[in-house]
Design a protein around this nucleic acid. Structure first.
Length: 586
DNA sequence: GCCGTTTTCGGCCCGACTGTTTTCAGTCG
């Protein structure tokens, strides 16, 4: 069974092969865009093709970036398991060369030279010949370049995957605060995918405005975490750093304060969003770059004394282009420039936590400690939701223990002021969709969060049926971390998400955005489609220890990326409204 | 390759930095 990601990977590889064969760069861009669009789709392409390959071509070609040609190639790939063009390219380009191209600093020109002139066809080949005189004889291949390639290979092997948001963000906050202490710094923020709240981060981007550029540059390139300085230019520096077990690249861009907004916009990206904005500017006979929005189409207007139409803040640039301000989380070229962006949910909108664990199962806090923690966050309601009996490793509760636990929760609720404590459970959705407690027990609970924990390698059809049963169950309020994926570690279930969303609307069951940064499940693009059909959403931290309640920000960022408004999130509702909704399922 | 409020051809974002260059190519984001 071919997944959307599999198909996207084929298109990405075609683009890489064409780069190595020095094809037209716009054609390469075209294939790259198809790959990106495919990754973002929630419709199961293979399923679409299975139903009717003719209409699948038409449907696929309706997505921006996918034309008739690519649509037909997708159908060919899904129906035959192969794509002629892809196979032809693979016959021309050695497979190992893609890894060489993946080394930072090695682009298509260098990789092609190594291949054609020296017969290097894999990363192993390259590593074996790093010190050979033939390599040094290639054009533009001096001692420094070779040294940089060595370090880049080392970095790539050590750094591995993109860094999860929850690892990168605390590091970035710490570095940001440290850099803000440098004398003369007027503004300093992080930008890039971190500011956009992506679930994984490629590198850390910082933007500074300051009186004394040399001071901030010096501090940045000599931070104790820095292991290598890659660039140290007038306005841009680049380093590799190791901290807290993470290996990352970080960039610092320094600009005058009066163009800070334009630079922040440019540095926040995404690249594709920036390209769209610049195209809009061109249509208006203007030019947009990191120094501002300028009248006319002259190159580098900032060098010729031109005054920008807008530059100091991001919003003024969107407005000058005739657009609404787009929050960073939405800047992904997914249609955010058409029409008015919604008013996105914020951290302070959250008023309840509906998924949290205590020492009764695998949490570290007692009921009282958990409730105090929730109170400190200003919540009006906390649901205590320990694991059910099948989650043996997590100390899941037998029916007897659960009944006693419910009593203890009720007592704590009676004892404590300032917060409503609800008796709940995180009930396993068993592999066949059955729940881990029977209905009589479930009916005694104020809140039922039903979540999949085991058999997460199920095929999509079985997984769909499994989750549908839970969504349709009249006593279930929320389906927790619906796919069970763990970022960079486990794919999780791949059900027909659209079928889940429709059922969730029909049965008034909320779907969770689990805010734990290892999960972020629902993920952003799933959630975007859930909102299109009108699902109710819960954002929960799944807290096991006090500090994990601060994971909420990752759930909020993910939700904002999907365009979630406060009203659609049950955790934002006032107590009476929330309690009434929970009660409607009893 | 894709696309269209200059639409079926002719465009397709823009700038910084490094290294190896005598004036710029390659890479990156």
């Amino acid at each position: 069974m071919m997944t959307n990601n599999d198909i996207a990977a084929v298109f990405k590889q075609i683009a890489s092969a064409l780069e190595l064969l020095e094809a037209n760069r716009f054609r390469i861009n075209g294939y790259q865009r198809v790959s990106r669009v495919l990754k973002d789709l929630t419709e199961d392409i293979a399923g679409l093709v299975d139903e009717n390959s003719g209409s699948a071509v038409k449907r696929l070609a309706t997505f921006d970036g996918i034309g008739k040609g690519s649509a037909e190639k997708i159908v060919e790939l899904v129906t035959t398991g192969k794509m002629a063009e892809h196979q032809e390219l693979l016959a021309k380009v050695p497979a190992g060369l893609f890894d060489v191209l993946g080394i930072p600093g090695i682009g298509p020109k260098a990789a092609t030279l190594m291949w054609k002139d020296l017969g290097i066809t894999s990363l192993a080949d390259l590593k074996a010949r790093l010190d050979s005189p033939e390599l040094a004889r290639l054009p533009r291949m001096g001692a420094k370049t070779i040294e940089n390639i060595k370090k880049a290979i080392e970095f790539r092997e050590k750094a591995g995957d993109r860094v999860p948001l929850g690892v990168a963000r605390p590091i970035a906050l710490r570095l940001r605060d440290e850099l803000r202490n440098v004398p003369g710094v007027q503004r300093l923020e992080f930008a890039g995918s971190l500011r956009r709240g992506r679930e994984t981060i490629g590198d850390l981007d910082f933007l500074a405005a300051c009186d004394d550029p040399e001071a901030i540059r010096e501090r940045f390139t000599t931070l104790p975490e820095v292991t290598q300085v890659l660039a140290r230019g007038e306005t841009k520096s680049s380093v590799r750093l190791e901290t807290g077990g993470a290996v990352l690249q970080a960039d610092l861009r320094i600009v005058p304060q009066q163009v800070y907004g334009a630079a922040l916009m440019y540095f926040t990206g995404s690249k594709e969003h920036n390209v769209r904005l610049r195209e809009i500017a061109i249509k208006q006979q203007r030019r947009l770059n990191e120094y501002g929005l300028f009248e006319g189409t002259e190159e580098r207007p900032q060098d010729h004394g031109a005054a920008p139409v807008a530059a100091s803040d991001e919003e003024s640039i969107y407005v000058a282009l005739g657009l609404s301000y787009v929050p960073p989380e939405l800047r992904e070229d997914r249609g955010e420039l058409d029409g008015e962006p919604p008013r996105l949910i914020e951290l302070t909108d959250i008023q309840s936590e509906l998924h949290a664990h205590t020492v009764a199962s695998d949490g570290k806090m007692t009921i009282d400690e958990l409730a105090e923690c929730a109170k400190r966050h200003g919540y009006h309601t906390l649901a205590v939701t320990d694991h059910s009996k099948s989650s043996v490793i997590a100390g899941g509760l037998s029916e007897e223990r659960l009944l006693a636990h419910i009593d203890a929760i009720r007592e704590a609720d009676a004892r404590m002021d300032g917060i409503k404590i609800l008796a709940g459970a995180e009930v396993d959705i068993l592999p066949d969709g059955e729940l881990d407690y029977d209905d009589e027990i479930l009916a005694r609970l104020d809140v039922v969060v039903a979540s999949p924990h085991a058999s997460l390698g199920q095929d999509p059809k079985t997984a769909t049926q499994r989750l549908l049963r839970a969504i349709r169950h009249p006593l279930v309020h929320i389906v927790g971390h619906p796919t069970g994926r763990i970022i960079n570690r486990r794919e999780g279930l791949s059900p027909d998400m659209n079928a889940l969303f429709e059922a969730a609307v029909e049965h008034d069951t909320a779907l969770e955005v689990n805010a734990n940064w290892r999960r972020l499940d629902l993920r952003d693009n799933h959630l975007r489609h859930a909102l299109e059909v009108g699902c109710r959403i819960a954002i929960n931290t799944d807290t096991h220890r006090a500090e994990q309640m601060d994971f909420l920000i990752y759930g909020i960022l993910t939700a904002r990326r999907a365009g979630l408004t406060a009203a659609s999130c049950i955790n934002t509702w006032p107590a009476e409204e929330l309690h009434a909704w929970l009660g409607s399922k009893r």
